[in-house]
Amino acid sequence: ADVLERQAKEWFNMTELLTDKKVIEEMKPEIALLKTIIQLKHLMNGEVLQAAVKIAKQVADDIKQKLDMTIKRSLTGRLDKNTSSVMKCSANLDFKKTIRRNLKNYDKASNQLILKDIYFSGRVKKHNKKRIIIAIDESGSMLGSVIYSAVMAQIISELPFAEVKLIIFDTSIVDLSDHADDPAQTIMSVQLGGGTDIAKALTYCESLIITPRDTCVIVVTDLYEGGSEAQLMNVSKNIITSGAHLSFLTALDENADPAYDKATGQKLADMGSFVGSLTPDKLGDYIGKIFA
């Protein structure tokens, strides 16, 4: 990380990127820029950081716009067999989401919360709910996958028959399930550096499983385990034995060109989990096939 910062400042003259919000605002919002922001955001503050968050939102929105219909059509076609349409009535009001997403509209003068956007939930029988648990390895090599995973979590969370649990991890775990519908929040929560404890993250995922056969655990990671490999294998076996679906995505981005620990991947695959890379547009069909 120190080397990266020095190169950013000395080689690419990016000091302005860290200190002048106008520089960020004038740059084209794209994944390459967002990756740089993620790597350097700990050096940003104030208006510069706010401008960086806007870039994260723009990039996430652009990706979502490209993938939204494809993913939802794929998932809906396979899973949404008994779901009634979403009716905008008081019984379906998503109170928590409505309040959370409108906090920015709080009027201090009148001491009132102004609801500019109202959110409703689909009325779905509980036994139709599919729980998708997405755990994202925030190590530097996974940056592209982190961005796409955050957007995929948002797309899936908008479906009435799917419930998304979202965590990011290194050697510690951050549960961002309450922000699964806000990929910019997920992306800007990434903290690079430190080790990786996949077993610890997967153990936490196991604790989130309620109905195994209606649960899919997706771990987006390069499988370079810094924790206990024995524990990783044990918890993986427990999840598979329970009847839940376990997948390790070694890459989830536009290239799907992974670099990962193939020995560990082979052991997990031999155990019965899916190990491989996917482009984002294929993930919806993959999840649909799991629950079909």
Rank of each mutant, 00 (worst) to 15 (best):
Ser172His: 04
Ile71Met: 11
Leu49Lys: 14
Glu30Asp: 15
Gln191Lys: 11
Val124Gly: 12
Ser90Tyr: 13
Pro258Arg: 05
Pro280Leu: 10
Ala244Asn: 06
Lys104Gly: 00
Ala251Cys: 08
Arg78Pro: 04
Leu103Glu: 06
Asn111Val: 01
Ser172Tyr: 06
Leu192Met: 02
Phe248Glu: 05
Ala8Asp: 03
Leu192Lys: 01
Ser84Lys: 14
Leu192Phe: 05
Ile134Glu: 01
His127Val: 13
Ala259Phe: 13
Met44Trp: 08
Ser74His: 02
Asp80His: 09
Lys125His: 02
Ile239Lys: 07
Val219Tyr: 03
Leu268Pro: 09
His179Phe: 15
Val124Ile: 12
Ser228Trp: 14
Leu17Trp: 10
Phe169Lys: 00
Val53Pro: 01
Ser273Asn: 00
Arg213Thr: 12
Asp270Thr: 08
Asp178Val: 14
Leu223Cys: 11
His245Gly: 04
Thr250Phe: 10
Val275Cys: 13
Phe12Val: 00
Gly243Ile: 08
Leu34Ser: 06
Glu30Pro: 08
Lys116Met: 05
Ser247Arg: 03
Phe161Asp: 13
Lys64Asn: 03
Met69His: 13
Val151Arg: 01
Glu25Tyr: 05
Thr264Glu: 04
Gly122Ala: 05
Leu232Arg: 10
Leu34Pro: 06
Leu115Ser: 00
Val235Asn: 06
Tyr224Gly: 09
Ala32Asn: 07
Ser149Trp: 01
Lys262Asn: 04
Asp20Lys: 12
Asn111His: 01
Leu113Cys: 12
Cys89Gly: 09
Ile240Arg: 11
Leu34Asp: 04
Ser90Gln: 13
Leu18Glu: 06
Leu202Met: 12
Tyr260Trp: 07
Ile114Asn: 07
Ile99His: 04
Gln39Thr: 12
Phe169Trp: 01
Gly77Lys: 00
Asn92Pro: 00
Gly77Val: 06
Glu254Asn: 13
Asp214Val: 02
Tyr204Pro: 01
Lys88Ser: 02
Ile287Cys: 09
Val53Leu: 01
Ser149Lys: 00
Phe274Gln: 09
Lys126Asp: 14
Leu34Gly: 08
Gly77Gln: 08
Asn111Leu: 01
Leu192Ser: 03
Ser207Ala: 06
Tyr260Val: 08
Leu75Lys: 04
Ala1Lys: 10
Ile287Lys: 00
Gly195Ala: 13
Glu10Trp: 04
Asp61Cys: 03
Met27Cys: 01
Arg213Ile: 11
Met188Ser: 09
Asp178Glu: 15
Thr250Asp: 08
Leu278Gln: 06
Gln58Asp: 12
Cys216Gly: 04
Asn102Trp: 14
Lys88Phe: 04
Asn234His: 05
Arg101Trp: 08
Gly195Thr: 13
Phe274Pro: 10
Ile71Ser: 08
Ile99Gln: 03
Ala56Ile: 10
Thr250His: 04
Ile218Trp: 08
Ile198Cys: 11
Asp222Glu: 14
Gly226Tyr: 13
His42Pro: 03
Tyr286Arg: 14
Asn82Ser: 05
Glu206Met: 11
Leu43Ala: 11
